[in-house]
Amino acid sequence: MGKSQSKVDLYAAIRRDHRGGMSQRALQRKYNVTWRTVRRALDGQWPEPRKQQRRRESRLDPYKPLIDGILQADLDAPTMQRHTAQRIFDRFVEEHGADDISYPMVRTYVTDRGPEIRRDAGISTRHAACCG
């Protein structure tokens, strides 16, 4: 099955070629599929919809509301007193014993989330210094 071909198209092509006289074994070889796939297509079944991938939980998830709170509190703080990603990380390690998170995890979250929090608060992000 080619990358650009959907399963619905594949099933339709298998049915069409089978009506044209191709054997099931030839269909397997031509479309590089198993006999079960050929059988399902010929039985008139529709391909099963793709399963939705469950979002993998991050070790940072329990700390995200705390980080959001820090970033929201920093909206009112003078520029030089705002938390950097490093300071937030250090606080979590010291105050919460968060040895299971890494600095890059915190930095990425703060870099992505900081502008969203400022935008939600109605503060322009164009001239604001990033908090990372």
Rank of each mutant, 00 (worst) to 15 (best):
M1W: 01
G2T: 12
G2I: 08
K3G: 15
Q5M: 15
K7Y: 11
D9C: 02
A12V: 07
A12H: 14
I14A: 07
I14Y: 09
I14Q: 08
R19L: 15
G21T: 06
Q24W: 00
R25F: 12
A26S: 15
Q28C: 15
Q28E: 15
Q28A: 04
K30E: 10
K30H: 13
V38M: 08
V38W: 01
V38P: 07
R40K: 13
R40C: 11
A41W: 06
L42P: 07
G44C: 04
P47C: 07
P49T: 09
R50T: 14
R54Y: 08
R56H: 11
E57Q: 09
P62Y: 14
L66F: 06
D68E: 14
Q72K: 13
A73K: 08
A77Y: 13
A77M: 07
P78K: 11
P78F: 06
T79G: 03
T79K: 12
M80T: 08
M80K: 11
R82E: 05
R82P: 10
R82V: 04
Q86T: 10
Q86K: 13
I88P: 02
D90K: 05
D90M: 02
D90L: 05
R91C: 02
R91W: 02
V93S: 02
E94G: 00
E95T: 09
H96Y: 13
I101V: 15
I101P: 12
S102I: 02
Y103F: 15
T108L: 14
Y109Q: 03
Y109L: 06
V110F: 01
T111Q: 11
D112N: 13
R113E: 09
T125Q: 10
T125E: 10
T125N: 12
R126I: 10
R126Q: 08
H127T: 08
A129M: 10
A129L: 12
